[in-house]
């Protein structure tokens, strides 16, 4: 990989973080991680990663959701692609994302555990879109 992109993983499951970090690093990404939302937001602001991988259900049931909305209000992060990973069902009412309103402004939803090949190809796609400074993330549901 010629230029190395950076990814921030925000998840309270340290094993998930280690496994996915190893996967992304093996493909040449620079990876940082945070085990809670507050720390995650701080790191996101200071390091401005090319992509954020976010778990919706951290110790607080809705921590990830709020974090994501807060992130979108920070100018330097408003366009950063976000992949939401979750082990909850897509039919869980809290997870019913309305593509029209895009209230949950994530670019992609992936079920946990994530399939390595799928994750890598999506990360690659989304990070190359940013370098072209493409349109803002409008919360298209692509699951």
């Amino acid at each position: 990989m010629s230029e190395s992109k950076s990814v921030l993983i925000i998840d309270d499951d340290s094993d998930f973080v280690r496994a996915v970090q190893a996967l992304l690093e093996s493909s040449g990404y620079r990876v940082r991680s945070a085990l809670n939302g507050r720390e995650g937001l701080q790191l996101a602001k200071t390091t401005q990663p090319d992509l954020i991988l976010l778990d919706v259900m951290m110790s607080e049931r809705t921590e990830g959701f709020f974090l994501l909305q807060e992130m979108r209000r920070v100018p330097v992060l408003s366009n950063t692609p976000v992949i939401v990973v979750s082990s909850i069902y897509s039919d869980e009412p809290v997870f019913r994302v309305d593509p029209e309103t895009g209230w949950l402004p994530a670019n992609l939803f992936l079920a946990k555990p994530v399939e390595p090949a799928k994750l890598l190809s999506e990360v690659k796609r989304l990070t190359s879109e940013t370098s072209e400074k493409s349109t803002a993330a409008t919360g298209r549901r692509q699951l």
């Binding site: 499951d13 094993d15 998930f16 496994a19 190893a22 996967l23 093996s26 555990p113 390595p116």
Partner: peptide
Amino acid sequence: VSHQLKAPLGAVKQYLDVLLYT
């Protein structure tokens, strides 16, 4: 069940998936 069982299983599976892939 949903949180305490699924989460650890998911983490183990994630390790194995990544291990085999990388």
